[in-house]
Simulated scan of single mutants.
Amino acid sequence: MLETLVLAAICLIGIAGVMLIGKGAFIKAKAELSQVLLKRSFAAQLDGGTGGKPWPWADFSTEAEIVAPRIGRSAIVLSGASGEALAFGPARLANTPMPGESGTAVIAAHRDTHFRWLKEVKPGDLLMIKRRDGKTLTFRAGQGRIARWDQSGINANAPGRHLALATCWPFEATVQGPLRYIVSAELISDAGKQSFASLN
Results as ranks from 00 to 15, higher is better:
Ile107Asp: 02
Val6Asn: 11
Ala164Val: 06
Arg161Asp: 01
Ile76Cys: 08
Val183Ala: 06
Lys130Cys: 06
Asp125Lys: 07
Leu93Gly: 03
Phe88Trp: 13
Gly177Tyr: 00
Leu126Gln: 12
Ser195Gln: 06
Gly124Asp: 02
Trp149His: 15
Glu101Leu: 12
Gly24His: 11
Ala141Trp: 04
Val77Asp: 05
Thr174Glu: 14
Ile10Ser: 13
Leu46Asp: 09
Ala166Asp: 03
Glu65Ile: 09
Phe171Pro: 10
Pro99Gly: 05
Leu127Ile: 15
Pro90Thr: 11
Ala8Cys: 10
Glu172Gln: 12
Ile129Asn: 05
Gly177Arg: 11
Ile13Ala: 15
Ala68Gln: 00
Ser34Gln: 10
Ala43Met: 07
Leu20Arg: 14
Gly160Ser: 07
Asn155Met: 11
Ser34Gly: 05
Gly49Val: 00
Arg73Phe: 00
Arg70Pro: 01
Gly192Asp: 07
Asn155Ile: 08
Lys53Cys: 08
His114Ile: 05
Ala109Thr: 05
Gly24Glu: 13
Ser189Thr: 11
Phe115His: 01
Asp150Tyr: 10
Ala43Val: 03
Ala191Lys: 09
Lys122Thr: 05
Ser195Gly: 13
Leu78Ser: 09
Glu3Ile: 10
Ala147Phe: 00
Leu165Lys: 00
Glu120His: 13
Trp117His: 14
Met128Trp: 10
Asp125Met: 09
Asp125Ala: 09
Gly14Tyr: 01
Gly17Lys: 06
Leu93Arg: 13
Ala9Gly: 13
Val175Trp: 13
Leu5Arg: 14
Leu38Tyr: 00
Arg180Asp: 08
Ile107His: 09
Ala87Met: 12
Glu172Lys: 09
Phe88Pro: 01
Leu37Gln: 11
Arg132Ile: 04
Asp133Gln: 07
Lys39Trp: 03
Thr4Ala: 15
Gly22Asn: 02
Ser184Pro: 12
Gln143Leu: 06
Phe26Met: 14
Lys193Val: 13
Val175Tyr: 14
Pro56Arg: 03
Leu7Gly: 11
Met1Ala: 15
Ser102Asp: 13
Pro97Gln: 10
Lys130Gln: 15
Glu65Arg: 15
Gln35Thr: 06
Gln35Ile: 01
Gln176His: 11
Leu179Cys: 01
Leu20Phe: 05
Arg73Asp: 06
Lys119Gly: 09
Ala43Ile: 01
Ala147Val: 07
Leu163Tyr: 03
Leu93Cys: 03
Pro159Tyr: 07
Ser184Trp: 00
Lys23Ile: 06
Met1Ser: 15
Glu32Thr: 09
Glu63Trp: 12
Lys53Tyr: 04
